[in-house]
Amino acid sequence: MNFDLHGFGPALWAGTLMTIQLAVASVACGLVLGLLGALAKTSRSRILRLLGDTYSTLVRGVPELLWVLLIFYGSVGAVQAVGEAIGKPQLELSPFAAGVLALALCFGAYATEVFRGAVLAIPRGHREAGLALGMSRRRIFWRLVLPQMWRIALPGLGNLFMILMKDTALVSVVGLNEVMRQTQVAVTSTKQPFTFFMVAAAIYLGLTVISMLALHVFEKRANRGFVRSAA
């Protein structure tokens, strides 16, 4: 089927690139938050465990759209105060930055539980073997725990990334020119909602397929040297 884009093709392409940038930046920040959250929840420190539980429970209990709105509009006063302190009273948080913060915050909360499950799945004997070999706890984490944790957590993280890719559409409510924002502009201008919403659906589907192929490559690489048990 040939879709008449009425000259909105370049705008949709630009929106697609913005969506990719938003998703990549959010997942990069979210992985860091998720790893820190998992380490906190599996820590021996009661305070760190409480902080990790509070973060994951609080963030997962509030819809992603609300986090986008809260961060974008709620940060106005704080950002202006910082701007006045550094001599830039017009300083403000961009929609892209607000979207990255909100999506990373939500991704990190769910990734916390994925990483936590992966840490608990690693046999305790592996750490004990590292200690017996005279390895420090830091070296055990980087050389023994982290590679195995990444391998176990990768399928779950892949599912979270698929959800994150579609959640980027929520950032359109604060004016970021990603796929859905550009699609809405095209629909308003041409009065052809079915055509442009179908194009947007095809774009998201294409991004999802590409992401699935990339995740398959990552999983295959992470599982080198491991033999899966037969069902």
Results as ranks from 00 to 15, higher is better:
Gly83Phe: 05
Trp150Ser: 14
Phe107Asp: 11
Leu154Ile: 10
Ala200Tyr: 00
Tyr55Ala: 03
Leu33Met: 09
Arg49Gly: 14
Val62Lys: 05
Ala98Asn: 07
Ser229Phe: 10
Pro123Lys: 05
Phe197Cys: 03
Ala109Asp: 00
Thr190Pro: 10
Asp53Asn: 14
Trp142Arg: 04
Val217Asn: 06
Leu66Phe: 13
Met180Tyr: 07
Leu164Phe: 06
Gly117Asp: 08
Met165Ile: 15
Arg139His: 05
Ala222Thr: 12
Leu39Gln: 12
Phe8Thr: 02
Arg60Asn: 04
Phe197Ser: 03
Leu91His: 11
Phe96Glu: 10
Ala202Pro: 07
Val179Asn: 04
Ala230Gln: 13
Phe226His: 09
Arg143Pro: 02
Arg46Ser: 05
Ser211Asn: 13
Leu207Met: 09
Glu92Thr: 12
Arg224His: 12
Val27Met: 10
Thr19Asp: 06
Ala169Glu: 04
Leu215Phe: 14
Ile210Trp: 08
Leu50Tyr: 05
Arg137Lys: 06
Phe161Arg: 00
Gly34Ser: 09
Leu154Lys: 01
Asn177Met: 15
Asn223Pro: 06
Tyr73Cys: 11
Val114Arg: 11
Val174Ile: 15
Arg127Met: 14
Ala85Leu: 15
Ile203Ala: 01
Ser189Gln: 02
Val68His: 04
Met1Gly: 03
Ser136Arg: 10
Val24Glu: 02
Met165Tyr: 04
Ile203Tyr: 09
Leu144Val: 15
Tyr73Met: 05
Gly156Arg: 05
Ser94Cys: 08
Trp142Ile: 14
Met149Ser: 06
Val82Leu: 15
Val59Met: 12
Arg60Val: 10
Gly225Met: 05
Ile122Tyr: 03
Ile140Val: 12
Glu113Arg: 13
Thr42Asn: 13
Pro10Gln: 10
Arg228Phe: 01
Val119Asp: 06
Arg137Thr: 09
Glu92Ser: 15
Val227Ser: 11
Ala153Gly: 01
Asp167Leu: 02
Glu84Phe: 07
Ser45Trp: 11
Leu5Thr: 01
Gly117Lys: 09
Gly34Asn: 04
Phe141Ile: 09
Glu113Cys: 14
Ile203Thr: 11
Ala28Tyr: 11
Ala153Met: 07
Gly15Asn: 06
Val114Glu: 09
His216Glu: 15
Gly108Thr: 11
Asn223Ile: 14
His6Val: 04
Ser45Glu: 10
Phe72Cys: 03
His216Trp: 15
Gln184Val: 13
Ile122Met: 02
Leu58Pro: 03
Lys166Gln: 12
Leu35Asn: 12
Ile210Thr: 00
Leu70Gln: 10
Ala230Lys: 12
Gly158Trp: 04
Ala102Gly: 01
Thr54Ala: 15
Ser43Gly: 05
Gly156Cys: 01
Val82Cys: 13
Ser43Cys: 15
Glu128Asp: 02
Lys88Asn: 12
Ala214Pro: 09
Val62Ile: 15
Gln80Gly: 06
Ser94Val: 03
Leu101Cys: 13
Leu65Ile: 12
Ser94Phe: 00
Arg139Trp: 09
Val174Glu: 08
Val119Met: 12
Phe141His: 03
Val171Pro: 00
Leu144Thr: 14
Ser189Glu: 02
Ile152Ala: 00
Arg151Gly: 03
Gly37Met: 11
Pro123Cys: 00
Ala14Ile: 07
Ala121Pro: 10
Leu103Gln: 00
Ala200Gln: 00
Ser136His: 12
Leu154Tyr: 09
Ala118Phe: 10
Gly52Thr: 07
Tyr55Ser: 07
